[in-house]
Every structure is written in C-alpha cells, then in structure tokens.
Write a protein that binds this DNA or RNA. Structure first.
Length: 286
DNA sequence: CCACAGGACGGCT
DNA sequence: AGCCGTCCTGTG
C-alpha cells in the first residue's frame, strides 16, 4: 500500500462525467467538489479536473500512472474512431457530439462478470448499492483520506458465501446465479485467465453464456466493458432497442426483434458497434 | 395498494 | 425457433 499522485494532461476525447455515467461502471462516486472517487483493483483513486489537467491521487498497490493508462484505455485513438463513426450518418455525428468524452474502460474481468449478473432486471442505483454492500462485506478495506473503501471481493473471498448470504445483501433472485457462477469459476469450469487469452470472440461469448445469470445482453456487456475489450459486440437492452427502432426502423414496438436490431447494428457499425452503442445510449437515455 | 421497470431462464408450443 | 410467466426490489 502506497500513496501516489500523478498529474495527467487532459487527453483528447476524455470527460469524467461521460465516462462514469454512460452505464459501463458502478463503483465511482462524485463528490461535492466535482471530483470522483472509485476503487480499481486494490487501489482507491481520486480524480479532480483542474485547468485542463487531472490531479490523480491513490492509495493502493499498483503503479498509478500505468493503472490509469490501462484502465482509461488511453492507448487507443478515440478521435480516429469518432471520425470513422461520424461518417456513417447524422445520428452518429450528433450522438458523438453529445458524448465525445466517453472512453470504454478496461475493467477487471471477474468484477465485470459479477457486476453485470447483478445488473439483470435491475436499475443503476440499486446495482451500485448491492456492489457496495458486497465489497464492504467480503472485500478488503483500504483507508483513503480518513474514509474506508473496499476492494471488489475475489472469487476465493466468496468461496463460503451461501445463497442465503447473497439474498441477505439484497440480491433478490440473482442470489443463486451469483453463487453458481462463483462456484463455476472456483472449480475452473470456466477459466477466466484462458478466456482473457482466447482471441475467438464467438467462442468466448459461448463460454460466458454457460455461466448462470449470463444471457446475451450480459455476455456482450462483459465482452465490451472488461479487459476482454471487444468493440464489435452490440449489447441490446430495452433502451437501445427502442432507440435503434426510432432512428432506423420505425416499426411497431412488438414487431422489432432483437435479431433484426443485431443484424442492423452489425451492418451499420461493424467493428465499432460497441462504441456506437455507447454514444447512442448516452445520447438518447433521457 | 397497485402498476411498472429491468434480463435470464425454463416450460411451453 | 419464438412466446410468456416468473424471479426481487425500488419508485411513482
């Protein structure tokens, strides 16, 4: 555990509000002064913007500069990707204008898996609260500026947690899914390390789908928002379904099938479908 | 108190 | 293959 500070010059296409509120992560809190505090792996991180710079402080075990570079996907040229997408149509151009500071985070695979199982049939405030309780109960404490924060519990730390324990944390019917998936990971029925190294996206998707609580939408969110980093997937929830129908199909709501939207997204956005999804979702969410 | 919102899943056709 | 009821909790 060490304290670190790092000053990051504001990168192109980078806004904290866009990054943290576009629906990809659940562990960042905004403070009254506009700064954000979050937990990334075994580190608590605080970020404050000031004069086109970010003052970043941390307590934790990882090298802060390297962690920030990886987590915020700073090695990728978002400006170039935005230019490509902007050429597709007016909707893309407008939505990128609106959410130009979005970055797709590289979040820990295990944490993303569990977080999005919790997200099923659920809303963001409740998802955040459940993850907070889960971490406080089973994660490790890190003190930062006088307050306590908790790391996301590892599979081993959830080894002896029962379905009833999960239920008591407010997970509802997701209790059994969390239990079964945790056990499957511990038993190496699914090896996350191997999954991380597998380059065949369809294969990775199929394996994710074998886990309890992972359906098509959750699998695609994991593929896009974790270190798996597959930009070509297009997670479809009821919102993006509605938005895509409004913008491109205009069919009666009961006639739009998921398959049709999926096909349309692949044809229109191709390799960048996931990024396009984020801009569209963020733009039309209100 | 009731209606509704949000994905996975299992049972049905 | 597609359709539909059920699972839990918070909100209006």
């Amino acid at each position: 555990m060490k304290e670190q500070q790092y000053i990051l010059k504001k990168p192109e296409c980078f806004e904290l509000k866009d990054i943290f509120t576009c629906g990809q992560c659940f562990r960042w809190q905004e403070n009254e002064d506009g700064s954000y505090i979050g937990v990334v792996k075994n580190n608590v991180i605080k970020i404050r913007e000031e004069n086109s710079k970010y003052i970043i402080k941390s307590v934790g075990e990882d090298n802060l500069e390297k962690l920030v570079y990886e987590y915020f996907d700073l090695g990728r040229d978002y400006q170039e990707l935005q230019e490509k997408l902007s050429k597709i149509d007016k909707n893309m151009k407008t939505s990128i204008e609106y959410g130009k500071g979005i970055r797709i985070l590289n979040q820990d695979l295990w944490e993303t898996l569990i977080s999005f199982i919790i997200s099923a049939n659920n809303n963001i405030p409740r998802i955040q609260k459940i993850i907070q309780r889960l971490s406080k109960q089973y994660g490790k404490e890190i003190k930062f500026e006088g307050n306590s924060y908790y790391t996301f519990p590892l599979p081993e730390e959830l080894k002896d947690v029962s379905i009833q324990d999960f239920r008591n944390l407010g997970l509802g019917f997701r209790d059994k899914r969390l239990y079964e998936t945790t056990q499957a990971i511990l038993n190496k029925e699914v090896d996350l390390q191997k999954l991380q190294e597998n380059e065949n996206t369809e294969e990775v998707r199929e394996i994710l789908l074998t886990l309890s609580g992972v359906g098509p939408k959750v699998a695609d969110c994991i593929l896009l928002f974790s270190t798996l980093k597959r930009f070509e997937v297009f997670p479809i929830d009821v919102w993006i379904n509605r938005v895509m129908n409004e913008l491109y199909l205009n069919e009666p709501e009961d006639k739009v099938s998921k398959a049709k939207i999926q096909k349309l997204a692949n044809e229109k956005f191709g390799e960048l479908a996931g990024l396009a999804q984020q801009y569209l979702f963020y733009w039309r969410r209100d």
